[in-house]
Structure formats: C-alpha cells, structure tokens
Amino acid sequence: MTPVVQLDGVGHRFGSAANGVAAVSDLDLAVRRGTFTTLLGPSGCGKTTTLRMIAGFIRPTSGRILLEGTDATDTPPERRNIGMVFQSYALFPHMTLTDNVGFGLRARRRPAAEVRKRAGEALELVGLSHAADRKPGELSGGQQQRVALARAVAIEPSVLLLDEPLSNLDARLRVQMRQELLRVQRETGLTAILVTHDQDEALQLSDTMVILNGGRLEQQGDPRTVFPAPANRFVAQFLGYDNFPEVPGFGPVTIRPEHVRLTAAVTGEEAATDSVELAGTVADVTYQGSHCLIGVDTAGGRLNCVHPGDDFRPGEAVRILLPRHRLVELADAHTPAGAR
C-alpha cells in the first residue's frame, strides 16, 4: 500500500547553503494509512520543521515529499489537503465555531448546505454542538483545541498534522485530550502525525514513534519495541533511562531507575545469578511518599534508583542489584550531539 506521507532524504537548512544551519538532515519516513505517528524529540530537534515541510509551509532544501504517492515537494499548502492543528489553536477569532469549522469546506466551494451539515457533524464529533454559534474567545483552551481539531477533520484531509496541540493545556486536561485525540483519530480513520516533546504523549498515542535529534533520525518503531530497547544513549536518556553505569563485563549499558534494586550491605538478600551486583554508598535520598529517589555512588559512576522504602540514609554502604534482563546494551558509547 502506498504510504500516505513519504519523505525521501528530506533536509532543510536555514540560511545560506554554505553557512546555514541544518534543521533537518536526510530524513526518510513512510507513514501508513490510518496510523498515528509521533515525531518526538527535544526542542530544536527538527520535529516542527519536518511537520511544516509536510504541510508545505517550509520547502525542503533537499529531498522529496510524496503525498498519496505523488510528488508534492513544490505543492503549496492550500493544495495539499492537509488538516493542521496548531499549538496556539489559531482559530479565527472573528468567526463563530460553525464558520471556523466550515472554513476549509467554503474554501473548497462546497454548497452552503453541505458546509453547514459537515461543520455540524465535526463539532458533534468533539462534543461542542451546543456552542456552534459562539466565538472562540468565549471558550476554554481545551474547548478551543477541540474546535481546531474539528476544523482540521471537517475537510477530510489525507493527513492530520498536529503541532504540539496539547502543550498549552494544563496537565490534567492534557491527559484527557490525549484520549479525545486518539478517539477522534480512530473514529475518523484518519492518518495522523503529531509533534511532541512529551514522551508519555508519544508512548500513549503512537503506532509509530519517530525520535529525532539534531535534525536526524535516532530511532523509530512501535512504542512497545522502542521503549524497552533504546538504540543509543540519546534515545535512552530521552526516554528516562537515567543511568549509564560502567558494569564489569558489559559495554555501554543503561538501566531505568525503577529497575535498580538496593539492598543492605551486610544483611541484604543474596545476589541472584540473573543479577549483576555492585557495591556503593548512598549519596542522597529524596523522599517522594510512595517511594524514594536514591542516588548511589559506585566505582562505575552515579546510579539513580527508585526505591520502594525509606530505609536508607546518606553515607550508608549498600549493595546494588542490576537484573540482567533489564540492562539495555547501547550501540554507542559517546554522547550524541545535543544530548547534553
């Protein structure tokens, strides 16, 4: 099946070709119909530039962009049939919700009756039918973003592009809106590409997550494949693998803080054969109620650990157990550019 969106060696340099800055370099990507893809990375990783190139607001300086199998590299945004949702919502403040949602259909010169009907349906999809005659300024941030979603969906776009749509919302609403976003995408069967710097968002929403750094692809795949097995130190760090210890008998490895086990130096449990044992000294304890965050100094560097009890104090000698199946071997020892 032809990918809905395909990037072939796409790059973008800001400034002149000679001394400009590469925002995106040589990016390949294929997005399958009906899937949810997230572009994940820290600010400046090129994820928004990539999305804006797919939308047509920025022209790639190298490579090709194919939409529905045809070369769209030079097609202006208004002829790409994309539905875009912006971080700032970008609703038209002088129009009612119905007129906002119907804007794309009017631009396509659909008959007024059809525009009204489909705008109504799109508003219903996001649960805002009752506010159809209001102006965006009368709505809360969460409601405005639902209107923006309805407006993008109403044109039945070939791809829904979402530029950090949830980052202006407060934490509770953000989690709610994720569900909403996923529901709308599933119900409409639309192909969606979402840009985010929030790994939780990416893990929850993605069929495919694409991790970018410094304009380059670091790793991509299904979250259940990527999360337990980050390919390199950058991805590991970004996904919250806080520890990069030197473990005797291993190359570069990483382990999540919640997988590091601490036990008393003398009376603690026996080391199982499936764990690597290290010795260390507690450096600091941060009390978090249900657990403690404990930093332990070892010969192989500092290890951060999520510990279920509050039974260790700074200065205490401890044994550290690293379950072998939780140690993830990394492809690189070095810290990639931009990770610091």
């Binding site: 939308a55 875009m84 970008a90 396509r108």
Partner: peptide, 15 residues
Amino acid sequence: QDPRLEDAARGLGAG
C-alpha cells in the same frame, strides 16, 4: 495577529 492564522487558513485550502 497570530501569523499561524494565515497558516491555518492556507492549510485549510484558502488561496
């Protein structure tokens, strides 16, 4: 004006 308004309008198919 939020310059994104123009982007939004163009994205929706407005010349």
